[in-house]
Design a protein around this nucleic acid. Structure first.
Length: 418
DNA sequence: TCTGGGGTCCTAGGACCC
DNA sequence: TCTGGGGTCCTAGGACCC
């Protein structure tokens, strides 16, 4: 096992046998915050929080200087400000993150054809076949880190191991700005002293449940009979955790997975009690979901409504359609009925969401029972075209116009005029 | 001034079929 | 008919991840 520290000391291939550590996990360090600092170098070294600055927002990212004060992502911004009053709060710019993400992923793609993206700022690379062209895993990882820094100005950490989850654990232990290689033979020595919270799939609840039974480290987990684990955390999770604790992880690097659901949700600045406001939001969200379905050439068969009330209790209600759809109007009509069936018209609502599940490829076999679907399909297709040409703002208008007037021809008229 | 928004996977019960 | 069992689909909720 060997580590490259932040002072730029290099790991040489002679230090460690990396021939079995062919899975790399790349993780950008404080990604969103680091991207913001590219534009604001004057803030380097200071506690910076990236968050939308409103009453109910949470921390999207924080620099290491802010983390020293106990600020973490997903923490309510109000609490973060209390812990670190001198922190500078910057608005997030998701287009920028997506741009830099693309640059980093592009570098990964040039190093191996087997790259699995994980969210916006992480990726797994299978570099078993890179030896001939580039070099051993350490050589690839070092080159990757150098190129990312040179071409984006951003810093990342890399873990290399025989399996995905060990590589991911290694990258988290290498942070910030490090490289950690775990050869296959060193896997258990590396794993067993670590706290269970580091394991994939062990969050707050599972950690507490296990700790209450005296299971604190991954080694403890390994020495707990699998039947006992199954009873404690459930069948699938118990079996999985036991395997992981012994370094067993059959998952391979999967270049791309198909989307299984598409949804949008929004939290109101203050709780809403007016059903008309809720419905207007459901209409907007349905339209957004439909646009993404059509953009991806997909249709969905199950519509899911999500409501979170003033006391933070959350419910979901779903309905499976006879035939899949990609139309905002159809989605809205279903979700609207489902909403009515909840039967809480005067409740204080904090969040509403719309999601489509059971996705499949569009095209053929999705004829609808709606008599005016053709008009609406034309209208929504036109909206997509307007969106592509004039940007998203114009689409929101077209969408509202089309729905308010109630017929597709109005939306078509809008597009002609526009 | 307490809790975002995008997702995946698992569990459990009931309906329904053979 | 004092009544099994497996498989699949649907629904609701929850844990977890980034």
């Amino acid at each position: 096992m060997s580590k490259q520290d932040g002072s730029g000391r290099q790991v040489s291939a002679a230090d460690v046998d990396d021939s079995t550590a062919t899975v790399l996990h790349v993780d950008m360090d404080a990604f969103f915050a680091s991207v913001e600092l590219l534009e604001r170098p004057d803030l380097r070294g200071r506690p910076v929080i990236v968050a939308h600055d409103s009453a109910r927002s949470v921390v999207t990212a924080a620099t290491y200087e802010a983390r020293k004060f106990g600020v973490n992502s997903a923490m309510p911004l109000a609490i973060a400000k209390r812990r670190c009053p001198q922190a500078i709060v910057l608005e997030p710019h998701f287009e920028r993150y997506s741009h830099y993400s693309g640059l980093v992923m592009g570098i990964c793609d040039e190093l191996t054809p087997s790259v699995e993206r994980l969210g916006i700022d992480e990726a797994f690379l299978d570099v078993a076949g890179s030896g001939k062209h580039i070099g051993s895993p350490i050589v690839v990882a070092t080159l990757l880190r150098q190129r990312v820094l040179a071409e984006t100005g951003l810093v990342c950490s890399v873990g290399a191991a025989a399996t995905k989850f060990v590589a991911k654990l290694a990258s988290s232990r290498a942070k910030p700005d490090g490289l950690l290689v775990i050869p296959r033979e060193g896997t258990l020595d590396f794993l067993h002293p670590l706290p269970i919270s580091g394991l994939w799939g062990v969050g707050g609840k599972t950690e507490e449940t296990l700790r209450n039974r005296g299971v604190h480290t991954i080694g403890d987990l390994a020495n707990t009979p699998v039947d006992v684990l199954r009873r404690i955390v459930g069948d699938a999770a118990g079996a999985k955790l036991h395997e992981l604790a012994w370094g067993i992880d059959a998952r391979t690097v999967q270049p791309r997975a198909e989307e299984k659901s598409i949804g949008h949700e929004v939290t109101f600045e203050t709780d809403v009690t007016d059903p008309a406001v809720i419905r207007r939001e459901l209409l907007r969200l349905s339209g957004m979901v439909a646009v993404r379905l059509r953009g991806g050439g997909a249709v969905g068969r199950t519509v899911v409504l999500k409501l979170r009330f003033g006391d933070f209790t959350t419910i979901t209600r779903s309905r499976t359609l006879g035939e899949a759809t990609d139309l905002g109007r159809r989605i809205y009509d279903e979700v609207s009925e489902v909403y009515a069936a909840v039967g809480k018209p005067n409740a204080r609502v904090r969040l509403v969401g719309v999601r489509m599940e059971q996705l499949s490829e569009a095209g053929g076999g999705q004829m609808s029972l709606w008599d005016d679907d053709d008009g609406w399909r034309e209208a929504e297709d036109v909206m997509d075209a307007v969106s592509a040409r004039f940007g998203r703002g114009s689409v929101t208008q077209a969408s509202l116009l089309g729905n308010r007037r109630g017929r597709g021809s109005e939306a078509k008229g809008f597009a002609r005029d526009g």
